[in-house]
Design a protein around this nucleic acid. Sequence first.
DNA 1: ACCCAGGTGTTTC
DNA 2: GAAACACATGGG
Length: 236
Amino acid sequence: MNAPYKIYSALASVFGPQGWWPVTPEGHVRPLYKRGRFKLRSDRERFEVAVGAILTQNTAWTNVERALVNLNVAGGISPETVLKTDSARLAGLIRSSGYYVQKEKKLRLFSEYLVAKHPEGLGKWLGGPLTGVRAEILSLWGIGGETADSILLYAGARKTFVADAYTVRLGRRMGWFETNDYDAVKNFFEKALPRDLEVFNEFHALIVALGKDFCKPRPLCAECPLRRLCGKKGVV
DNA sequence: ACCCAGGTGTTTC
DNA sequence: GAAACACATGGG
């Protein structure tokens, strides 16, 4: 068992199942998987996950939940409702998620692209050849590596690892790598871990759970549940 | 009054 | 290329 997988197991036993995405209209997180298998029910759910992935960029999830509730109350979350809502109103609905002028544009561009280029729907699109679809999503303005991978993993159930700021921090503090480069970190974990959807899905969520309380920019190593496993080559 | 959050694009050395 | 900066609300 390699070091990253050991950390995954430790986190899983400390924090338990995270069950990230999708989200109910009430804003509550609902387990994505049943009997060990991750399944999304509809393109409607996939789209809501994609919207959440965009809105949560550098933003606390609680702020995103309010925006999702607002959108659902205002008429539901779909490419069509995004496109038929004028910019000022849409921006107002997502105000709580921060950067709302930019994010309104991101939602609109994503929706426009989806409707224009993939009218067959999100599930079909995301189910295509992984590297090609990833490059396609990545080419959209406002969607970088982490958001693209979040959409692929959580909305498309594709085996692609999501590396966020916490993941980079954890890896560096463990002494696994020095780089800050997104693709390098992503590749490190994909090489180290078993190619398993549940592992990819849960590990990213577990790292966020760890980061939320302990592996912060100013770390709280003394209380960290990983303190015995962490290399802690000085705080990076 | 700070720091931080499930980043990304642009500008500037 | 890397580093610095803008974008913005809400919680601790």
